[in-house]
Design a binder for these strands. Structure first.
Lengths: 247, 247
DNA sequence: CCAAAAGTGTTGAAGTTACACCCATGC
DNA sequence: GCATGGGTGTAACTTCAACACTTTTGG
């Protein structure tokens, strides 16, 4: 992140972030609402902006995410580059670009990133050109500015692929949780039901969770044991991966 | 690929191609040797160059590959963007850039692609700033210009990951082949031996190959049946993927 | 007849799916 | 006592890894 002679905006390259969060409502994605410059525009967008010319791509994604939503220190994984020449050409998007960009007609390639966070630990706070930053259930998103819906679909695809070869959840759940939370998370990501007994058996075999020998209180049903992740095993499996989880 | 007012070189974005080929010698990668501008530089590089500002990324990769190596109409899959600010800063690379680029100090982000081809169908022919275009066994590549070695490693990783969820080989083998060719291909990509009987059983179960009821001739050992791919089943599995091939 | 690669089955272990009931709690 | 979700085991089946010998050809 050192500064050099090129510490200025690179008008041709941007970064966009797909941040997934999770709660009982299911899988959510963090969107910003752009400050409106006219009526009838699609103002929901992924947090994203141009990078600096001397800035590493990963650093740029972190910075932009922080500037627009306040979220920082999040592990971001690259999805890829999106560079269709007409990706910014919808009329309502052009109008908006004219209001915020120095060179609104520039052809911009974006490098997209995604991440998973625990919604309760990260409270987004909009700033810069974001009017608000909100969690929206993934299933309710049907249109976004620019080509962001396409980017979201690619992020989901990558997440679904990732979940088959490494554990997922550490970043999405609170430090203490019950197994049905994890169960719901996996079902949300995969978009289909998973057998409860088989799910528990597999998770236990992986050794990524351990019971705290505490129970829930105040629930109107049999209280569940409370678990935490076994960080060692979890990390090891993130690095090694597994071929075959059968989900 | 329509031309517009911006049909000029985009000095900030390039594309690089990792083209894998296969023969009995194992997995190879297509490299160009840059025309030397001084002594002692690393002149082996991936085929790659700047894109045009009105050019789709996928189209740009096709064009650049063709310009440098003569290969055309190859299905290229994106690996991702590589944009470390110092990726072009090795002294020998800088010197070379000064000889070919209008803005040799520009910070360039590259979008990398990879593909698999049948070496016998594609005979590379160097042109432009490529002095030669040659197949090099992947196992023998240890250094490359710029960050190209890193890009090669990422391509290999993606290929090894891909082979676990969909069939591979159609683009790498001739139309007719024997099962041991396919076997060797899988071993080359994965970098480890696979049991012959188990491999054949799995391939047969997938239904991606079918025998032509012809035998090899002129081989000093029991002749093998000759096979071709069943394109329907192959394509279907490329699209659907499988979770679990156990390689 | 020798060298070389082709081709082929079985077995024991592990993993997969599908499925139904009792339990502990709050109200 | 009722509603709610928690928690548990088994059986049938499929998949997996490991392993060795016979066959066909060219020279």
């Amino acid at each position: 992140m050192s500064l050099n002679k090129n510490h200025q905006i690179n008008p041709k390259i941007s970064t966009d972030c797909v941040i997934f969060g999770f709660d009982n409502e299911g899988l959510q994605v963090l969107l910003i609402e752009r400050k409106p410059v006219s009526d009838r525009e699609e103002n929901n967008a992924l947090p994203g902006d141009l990078i600096y010319d001397d800035e590493d791509l990963d650093d740029a994604a972190q910075r932009v995410l922080k500037e627009l939503t306040g979220l920082s220190d999040i592990f971001l994984e690259q999805i890829g580059a999106f560079g269709s020449p007409d990706r910014l050409s919808k009329p309502e998007d052009k109008k908006w670009l004219e209001s915020v960009r120095q060179y609104p007609d520039e052809r911009v390639i974006t490098i997209a990133y995604y991440s998973l966070v625990n919604k309760n630990l990260y409270k987004p706070q909009a700033s810069s050109f974001a009017q608000s930053a909100v969690w929206v259930p993934v299933s309710e998103v049907t249109t976004l500015a620019f080509d962001h819906f396409e980017i979201l679909k690619a992020a989901l695809k990558q997440l679904r692929s990732k979940i088959k070869t490494q554990p997922v959840g550490f970043n999405l759940l609170p430090a203490q949780f019950v197994l049905s939370d994890l169960h719901k998370l996996y079902e949300s990501i995969l978009g289909r039901p998973l057998d409860k007994r088989n799910f528990r058996r597999k998770i236990n075999k992986l050794g990524i969770v351990e019971s705290l020998n505490k129970k829930q209180t105040g629930v109107p049903h049999k209280p569940s044991l409370i678990y935490k992740f076994n960080e060692e095993n979890y990390q090891r499996l993130v690095e090694e991966g597994y071929d075959n989880f059968g989900f």
